[in-house]
């Protein structure tokens, strides 16, 4: 019994990471109908960036966020401004193809620079520190920090979206880009800010992923799938739903892995497919605030 509780708690905590993968993805899709196929590879790129920062500056990975987050945000702004804005239009296909190409470029570029060897960020003693929740149930400090960060990020995004002028501009541009321009909003700038925000979240997710487990240049697409699944399970357009979606996916994977180590990924996909069949709109489809 304790065993199972442990498994579920681990799943919930990993779910926070998946929710972070998903939040940046759904942000971009929601605002500009752009499906970013390179999203997973950008997560891995952020992990490698953190690797370089920690190795050259000798920083703890968590402190490297102070550099990696702004760097990825800047990259996101530039990527949107110089490349992706040109692909947006009535047709969904061009951004899909361009981000797919970007995914290939990032994967191969990273292989060229860092080889295919697995890497890991070392966070020191914090990695093995844990707290006892109740008798017999221990929670790793790092997964706990990770989950807390995920909740904080989702809450932060929610606040940005519904409480700030930037969020208002995001929502207006998503509703009707032409009329948003009449309000004096430059769509290109609004989209670039959205991508910057998305990659800032990606940066946090990438660093946490790299502290948690080994990574290599090819693991991006699977993170993209986890992100997609979390968004769909949670329901499109709902940030808190995305968090729940990540948790559902994390628990499903943890339970699968506990039954048989080979079932981890499969169990996640099965739960996703099952939910898609029963409740295609997701658990918490968008409701007006």
């Amino acid at each position: 019994m304790i065993d199972w509780i442990n498994v579920i708690i681990q799943g919930v905590l990993v779910g926070g990471l998946y929710a972070m993968f998903a939040a940046g993805l759904s942000l971009i899709f929601g605002i500009m109908r752009l499906v970013n196929i390179a999203h997973g590879d950008l997560i891995v790129l952020a992990a490698y960036l953190a690797l370089v920062v920690t190795q050259t500056l000798g920083l703890n990975p968590l402190w490297s966020l102070a550099i990696v987050v702004p760097a990825m945000a800047l990259l996101g702004y530039a990527l949107q401004w110089f490349v992706l804005n040109r692909t947006l239009g009535d047709d969904l296909l061009p951004p899909l193809l361009v981000t797919f190409g970007l995914s290939v470029i990032i994967q191969n570029g990273l292989q060229e620079l860092f080889s295919a060897d697995p890497q890991k960020l070392q966070a020191g003693t914090i990695e093995i520190a844990s707290v006892q929740l109740v008798e017999g149930i221990w929670i790793g400090l790092l997964p706990l920090i990770q989950f807390a960060l995920a909740v904080a990020i989702i809450g932060g995004l929610q606040a940005i979206f519904y409480r700030t002028a930037l969020g208002r501009a995001f929502r207006a541009t998503a509703d009707n880009p032409a009329v948003a321009q009449l309000m004096g909003l430059d769509n290109r700038h609004v989209f670039a800010l959205a991508m910057a925000l998305s990659l800032a979240v990606v940066a946090v997710a990438g660093v946490l992923l790299a502290v948690r487990a080994n990574f290599d240049p090819t693991i991006g697409p699977a993170r993209l799938i986890f992100g997609f699944e979390a968004v769909i399970i949670g329901g499109l357009g709902s940030l808190w739903g995305t968090l729940i979606g990540g948790v559902v996916l994390g628990v499903a994977q943890a339970v699968g892995a506990h039954l048989d180590p080979g079932w981890q990924i499969l169990a996640g996909h099965l739960v996703f497919l099952g939910l898609l069949a029963v409740r295609p709109q997701g658990l918490f489809p968008k409701v007006r605030e």
């Binding site: 509703d175 309000m183 909003l185 007006r288």
Partner: peptide
């Protein structure tokens, strides 16, 4: 803008 309340629609009109 359907995602915006009445007041937010007015606010965004004045955002310049």
């Amino acid at each position: 803008f359907p995602s915006l309340s009445v007041e937010e629609n007015l606010e965004i009109g004045g955002q310049l």
